[in-house]
Amino acid sequence: MGSLAASGGYWISANADQIWAAPTTITGSIGVFGLIPTFEKTLASLGIHNDGVGTSPLADIYRLDRPMSEQAKRIIQLNVENIYQQFLDLVASGRDISATQVHSIAQGRVWTGAQAKELGLVDELGSLKDALDAAASLAGLEHYDTRPIERQLNFQEHLFKQLTQRAEQLQLRLNIGRHHQVTLESAVKQQLGMIAQKIGLLSTANDQAGVYLECLECRLF
């Protein structure tokens, strides 16, 4: 687990041969809730009302412009409880404890990695390298390499990443500038110029195939 592996993150971790977490990992959150808002009072305040005919009492169960019937509420509640029970059973099977024991530490509560280990939700505390070493040991591997797999960014995402990095550099320069008399105005102007340049590039990115080539030497696009 990284810094966060709660709720769905723990769902996919529960059946692992070993679960590793950092002491500060946020995990747990074994729970389910459902929420369906309705806006009949808001609409009524605007003078909007409605009526209709359905083929069954549940035909309008998900209508947002009228109040939900008690029968519909009960059906949705049963569905939430059913998914919660599935979650409990999944964790109970993965951690080799009873669903009742899981329920006692579940109910949507969040734990740190250190607390989760004490509660039996995590096997070991350590770093990513520790987890990789443990996985290699379980697989019987003495020599292995790791390679991060990341989704390739599209042009807009890559541009946003660059702008974020520029902002971080600006913050660093301002911190250093307190000792070297770098003014806020000059630093901001420089960064705004770079941002304007990137936005200018984005405005020309209108190729229907989404294929572009940027020359890093001549700065042509």
Rank of each mutant, 00 (worst) to 15 (best):
F155M: 10
Q156G: 03
E157G: 03
E157W: 01
H158N: 14
H158P: 04
H158L: 15
L159S: 13
F160C: 13
F160I: 15
F160K: 14
F160S: 14
K161V: 02
Q162C: 06
Q162S: 14
L163G: 02
L163T: 07
T164A: 11
T164L: 10
Q165W: 10
Q165H: 12
Q165G: 15
Q165C: 10
Q165R: 14
R166D: 15
A167P: 06
A167K: 09
A167F: 10
E168T: 13
E168S: 11
E168M: 10
Q169T: 05
L170G: 00
L170C: 03
L170H: 00
L170Y: 00
Q171S: 14
L172H: 08
R173V: 02
R173C: 03
L174A: 01
L174H: 00
I176S: 00
G177Y: 02
G177R: 02
R178E: 06
R178G: 04
R178N: 04
H179K: 06
H180Q: 02
V182Q: 06
V182F: 06
T183N: 01
L184K: 06
L184V: 13
E185V: 01
E185P: 00
S186E: 15
S186W: 05
V188C: 06
V188M: 10
V188R: 04
K189N: 13
Q190G: 12
Q190K: 12
Q190W: 08
Q190V: 06
L192M: 14
L192K: 11
L192D: 14
G193K: 01
G193F: 00
I195K: 03
I195Q: 07
A196N: 07
A196M: 03
A196G: 02
Q197G: 06
Q197P: 03
Q197S: 10
Q197W: 11
Q197T: 12
K198D: 15
K198C: 08
K198F: 07
K198N: 13
I199F: 08
I199H: 14
G200F: 04
G200I: 05
L202F: 03
S203Q: 13
S203G: 04
A205I: 09
A205F: 06
A205V: 10
N206K: 13
N206P: 11
D207T: 02
D207M: 01
Q208A: 11
A209S: 10
A209T: 13
A209E: 12
A209W: 04
G210Y: 03
G210P: 05
G210N: 04
V211I: 13
Y212D: 08
Y212K: 07
Y212I: 06
Y212Q: 07
L213T: 15
L213P: 05
L213M: 07
E214I: 13
E214S: 11
C215V: 14
C215N: 15
C215R: 15
C215D: 15
C215M: 14
L216E: 07
L216D: 05
E217H: 15
